[in-house]
Write a protein that binds this DNA or RNA. Structure first.
Lengths: 113, 113
DNA sequence: GGATAACCAGTAGCGTGTCTACGCATGAAC
DNA sequence: GTTCATGCGTAGACACGCTACTGGTTATCC
């Protein structure tokens, strides 16, 4: 599965990963891959711009740190980011149930009337 | 909720609506609105091009019919469309469970390690 | 020493898909 | 004759993720 399908849910995923603690971009990509059992393997060209977007929106803040002479930009959730994540979660639930009505069989109606 | 969030799932929704029987474009929009309790109210500029796409892909076929001097283009699922819908359904399930790992609380891990 | 891989950040340009905003037509209601 | 619901359709804008690239450090293998 690629992030194309995610479209509009990527930000929520990023926020959710950062909910457990601050991470740098590369580690975020790793976390998404590991926690999804390899299903989400997002290219840097997808994640880095998305993180910049989130920072512009005030949902995360970033700070540079140098580890073994390597520059790493670590991202952390803001309070606004936490609120945004909560919103995204309820949005996701609504989305999931709405689409599910049509794509998940035997949930509400169906039964071939 | 708008179709922006659907991005990539709209085709599946259209196919799912047509699964119950042939409909014309306007009626498809209605069906989506009714069956989603008003949550999906898609503009014609979204649906008509999507139907054309589906027809180009061979997932639906269309036929003109005249009702009360009004031209209506009725869409119907093809066999390939049914197979595509089945694929979309399993894709949706995978998508749903993958994203759910991050956005649905208490599903797999969590428990604040 | 040189090649290759894993680590780490970032941008430019493209493609896809949905949205906004139109145009055009019929029939019914007022 | 104006307005509304029905019905089809397109053009252009826009957002977002993808591909492909640049650039740098540390470690490993030959």
């Amino acid at each position: 599965m690629n992030a194309q399908a995610l479209h509009g849910h990527l930000d929520a995923l990023l926020l959710a990963v950062l909910e457990r603690g601050a991470l740098h971009g590369y580690a975020i990509i790793e976390a998404l891959r590991v926690r999804s059992d390899g299903r989400l393997d997002l290219p840097t060209g997808t994640v880095y711009p998305a993180l910049r977007r989130l920072e512009r929106a005030g949902h995360v803040v970033s700070a540079w740190s140098t580890v073994n002479g390597r520059e790493r930009r670590t991202y952390e959730l803001t309070d606004a980011g936490r609120r945004a994540l909560a919103d995204q979660r309820s949005g996701w639930r609504e989305f999931r149930s709405t689409v599910g009505r049509f794509l998940d069989p035997g949930t509400t109606t169906v039964t071939a009337g």
